[in-house]
Design a protein around this nucleic acid. Structure first.
Lengths: 238, 238
DNA sequence: ATCGATTTGTGCGTATGTATC
DNA sequence: TGATACATACGCACAAATCGA
């Protein structure tokens, strides 16, 4: 039974914890250059290899970036929102695999985030962002099965981006993607996509008019429909 | 200028990407034991050291856990919600440091998550969870500056836990902690804590009665107050 | 443009921890 | 309980990349 929530017992773990603490406390700020591997290893009385493993672990956490060459070195990372979002996505993916994130739990979060998101997007969208959202709509007469996933995601991302709250994208995207991966791999019918597109178009209409209440309620209805579909799939496939 | 969004060029990076892909595609499921370092290194034609660094990077991402000894090895992780939450927290901490997560953006997310959370908690709380929340209240007559932070956090966590939506804790805790770290390091007055405690008590009253609407609105008012305080601090300290 | 100094990347060998017999 | 086998942890040496003089 693999499980490891222990305190640091290995050398690289101690070193990683030490550096991590300094970063999170603000002692080391983004862009700061750490000592070289040699300097770290001598200072902490470990081999260079051990220091490297600690650095690698923190780089995996997105806290450090490494550049080689004479002007290279190890730097405290300035992560992008996309990187943080990606990291959250992989964490949630594993949680849904191993533990028990039910459809209900995931959809509850989507409702909390995306209903207000639609409202915010109606208020804050630029014309350019609105155009990008329009681009993501399907041609309801001819559903293209190769484009439908990317269109669906583009719509979703477009609305989140139009809120002008970057954190919303960081948090909501992973939840959206995890649900999609879990329930929409193949088994969606054409009818499903036709209805999704129709509801997207309704939401877009409210975004056009900057109708915040309309966008909010249309988004709520859309998510209610998605919940019913996902829960039905969930009952079938376990 | 440190920045690195490159494609994998180093050997350990290639190996890490390869394994990461297998994990996220579901090919390797949580609990699965990977080949030994020696087997990995021979199979991928790299040294054991390189394989180790790839493993370390993925372990940092929370995708792998490593156990030593004869029955040890490298396993696909079964992360806990707390680990995913911690990882998100460090990501958000760096984002607030380097980039620009404004108070408004952070508080907007808190409102989206915590207002519905209070409503859910009023509906789903057990008596035991309610007891834990009561424990977190201050003694408003005697504010203990050493306990006030942990009490405040316990209240917050207690409400999230009482929603019975584990994802809520994963997402909301990091936002809460980042705001706290950034704005409440020292500069909160006793008056502030007295008012916070009073508003907590009001929310708890609604949780006692399972009054969902009451809890929701009290939470909304509480967050509105916090927003005003944080924004004021933000204007002062830049 | 080449050389050289500095830094990380990679390879191999040994030490140590851990479950089993 | 002690030996043993096998896994990861650690240490040293060399290769490769990068940038400036």
């Amino acid at each position: 039974m693999p499980s490891n929530g222990d305190a640091p017992v290995t050398a690289y773990d101690r070193l990683a914890s030490s550096i991590r603490k300094q970063i999170l406390s603000g002692e080391l700020r983004p862009g700061h250059r750490l000592p070289t591997e040699l300097a770290l290893s001598t200072h902490y009385q470990v081999s260079r290899n051990t220091a490297r493993e600690a650095i690698r672990a923190l780089a995996g956490q997105g806290l450090l970036v490494v550049k080689r060459g004479v002007a290279g070195g190890t730097f405290v990372a300035s992560p992008t929102t996309a990187q943080v979002s990606e990291s959250l996505m992989s964490g949630l993916a594993l949680l849904t695999d191993s533990a028990d994130l039910s459809v209900s739990v995931l959809m509850e979060i989507r409702e909390m985030l995306e209903v207000p998101a639609a409202e915010l997007a109606a208020r804050n969208r630029t014309d350019e962002e609105l155009g990008a959202i329009h681009e993501s709509l399907f041609d309801p007469g001819r559903i293209d099965p190769t484009r439908v996933f990317v269109n669906n995601r583009d719509f979703h991302t477009g609305v989140l981006r139009a809120t002008h709250n970057p954190l919303l994208e960081v948090l909501a995207e992973p939840v959206f993607r995890v649900l999609k991966e879990r329930f929409l791999r193949e088994r969606a019918s054409a009818d499903f996509w036709v209805r999704v597109d129709a509801e997207h178009r309704e939401i877009v209409g409210y975004l056009d008019d900057r109708d915040q209440a309309g966008a909010r309620e249309a988004s709520r209805a859309h998510l209610r429909y998605l919940r019913s579909v996902y829960e039905k799939i969930d009952r079938i496939q376990g």
